[in-house]
Every structure is written in C-alpha cells, then in structure tokens.
C-alpha cells in the first residue's frame, strides 16, 4: 500500500505570526514549524547545528531564524547556517493546502526506528 506522502499537522492559524511552534516526533527528532512575516511556513529540525539550541525559540526575520542560545543565523529555506558560521540542519518539506499545514512524511519521520 502507498504511504501518504504528506502529514496534516493542523491549521496555519495555530502558528503565531513571525514565530514558531514545535512538533515532537515520538522516537525521532522534534520539528520546529516557522511562520514568516509573509505568512509562509517552513519546518526545520528543532536543533541548532551549533549546540542543539531550540530554533523554535529564536527570532524570525525574513526567511531566517536567529538561534536563541548563541545567535547563529539559520536559513529557514535551506537549513544552512548563514554568515561566518558553518553547519546545516535538516529541512522538512512543507506545503499549505486549504489553510492546513502539510509536512513531508518521510522527512518528518527520518530517524524513527
């Protein structure tokens, strides 16, 4: 049987403007769902490539989040650290359909035994 490719994780209006919420994955890596000023939604593993700071708690500006622990800037689009810093965090594909947030199933469950 074909697995559904997308997981519906709830309505977009449950995201704070210019902020993020978290999505724990049992047995896997917690995901942070970000909302930009333009109303776009992105998802990254909720762990900074520096020292695993919770990116969901950073300040979102443009398509970047600044990590709350030591201010690394991470691209919401690519998961890459920006500027001088080097590192990358997994990006989970997201799409919005009918006001609901859908995330890539395989990527969300990556690492789950």
């Amino acid at each position: 049987m074909m697995e559904p490719q997308w997981l519906d994780i709830g309505p977009v209006d449950q995201l704070p403007a210019l902020g993020a919420r978290t999505l724990p994955v049992r047995g896997g890596q917690e995901i942070a769902i970000f909302h930009t000023a333009n109303g776009e939604v992105y998802a990254l593993a909720n762990a900074c490539p520096h020292k695993a700071g919770p990116l969901s708690q950073g300040i979102v500006h443009d398509t970047t989040v600044t990590c709350p622990l030591h201010n690394w800037r991470i691209s919401l689009v690519t998961g890459q650290a920006l500027g001088e810093d080097k590192g990358c965090v997994p990006v989970i594909p997201v799409k919005i359909d009918g006001g609901r947030i859908l995330i890539g199933r395989a990527e969300a469950l990556a690492g789950v035994a």
Binding site: E3, Q14, R21, T22, P24, G28
Partner: peptide, 23 residues
Amino acid sequence: KLHQHLAEIRPTPTPSRPVMELA
C-alpha cells in the same frame, strides 16, 4: 501558542499510519 506543541507525531510500530494528536 508559545507554550503548547502544535501537534505530536507518534509513529505506530507498524508504520502504516502515524497517529496525530493536536495540541
């Protein structure tokens, strides 16, 4: 919203359908 998870994913042992819980 700042204090609650958006939802939770709980993959079942036979990963046919992940169980979703909405916060």
